[in-house]
Design a protein around this nucleic acid. Structure first.
Lengths: 115, 115
DNA sequence: TGTCTATATAAGCATATGCTTATATAATGA
DNA sequence: TCATTATATAAGCATATGCTTATATAGACA
C-alpha cells in the first residue's frame, strides 16, 4: 500500500481489475439481463469452456456472482448481496446492453437444454 | 473479440483495467480534489518517481488526464473532455476521499515549490 | 454398470504488467 | 557554462494474467 494512502475502500481497485477484462465485463452485462448457465456463455464467447469456467470462478470468488446448481447444469447470476453491488450497477449503466447475443443464439438454433 | 459479442462500447474494459490498479485509482481520486504536480504524487506514494511517471503516462495516453507544463514542473489534472468522463466520475463516487493525504504532506512540512 | 453431457481443475505457456535502476531531456539559476 | 531540480524514457526482471489442452468430477440415464 502506498506511503500515506489508505486502502481506497475495501478493494475497489480489485473489483475494477476484475471488470477490466472484456470477456468478464460482457459476462456481467449479460447476467444483468438474466441468469445464464455455463454452456450458454461458452456458445456466446469465442473461447474454450475452461476459459469461461475460470472467469466465472474469479467473479464468484470475489462475491460478484452466485451459482445455482440444477442437475448437471450450473447457473450463474448477479449476487445482489455483493458488497460492491451498487458500484457494479453504476458501471454497468455505461456498458451497452448485450441482449442481442441471446437473440443470436436463438437464430443459430442454439437452445441449451438447461433453459 | 468474443464470437457474438460486440465491442462493449469503446473500450470500457480498457478504462476499468486502467483504474484497476490501486496506485492509479488513488491518483485519479486525488486529482478529483485538485490538480497535482508529479513531485507531489511521488511524495504521497511509496513508489519511485519513474513508477509515478509511467502511471501518469498511461492515464494521459488513455485521455483520462491532461498535463499542464509550468516551468520545470508538470501538473496533471482530470480531462473533462474524456470520452469516459461520466463513467469515471460515477466510479469515483464509490472511492473514499483522499484529501487527508494533502494534509499529511503539509504536516510533514512538504510544500513542493510548484504549489 | 457404462456412457453420455456439463463443469471444474491442473499444468504449461506466451504475453502483459508494474516495479526497479540507470540514463536522457529540459528548465532554472548561480 | 555548469550544477541542480523535475520529469521522462529505456532496459531488465519477477510476477500476474489469460489462454490452451488434458484430465478429473459429477449428474443423468439406458
Amino acid at each position: 500500500m502506498p506511503k500515506n494512502v489508505s486502502d481506497e475502500g475495501g478493494g475497489i481497485a480489485q473489483i475494477l481489475k476484475l471488470l477490466g477484462d472484456p470477456t468478464r465485463l460482457t459476462i456481467i452485462k449479460l447476467l444483468q439481463h438474466r441468469e445464464c448457465c455455463v454452456c450458454e456463455l461458452v456458445e456466446i464467447f469465442e473461447v474454450s469452456q475452461p476459459a469461461i469456467s475460470q472467469h466465472l470462478r474469479k467473479l464468484k470468488d470475489a462475491g460478484l456472482l452466485k451459482e445455482r446448481k440444477a442437475g448437471q447444469w450450473v447457473h450463474y447470476a448477479w449476487n445482489p448481496e455483493s458488497r460492491h453491488h451498487a458500484l457494479i450497477a453504476d458501471i454497468m449503466d455505461h456498458v451497452p446492453a448485450q441482449d442481442q447475443e441471446f437473440k443470436a443464439l436463438e437464430e443459430q438454433g442454439i437452445t441449451p437444454n438447461c433453459c
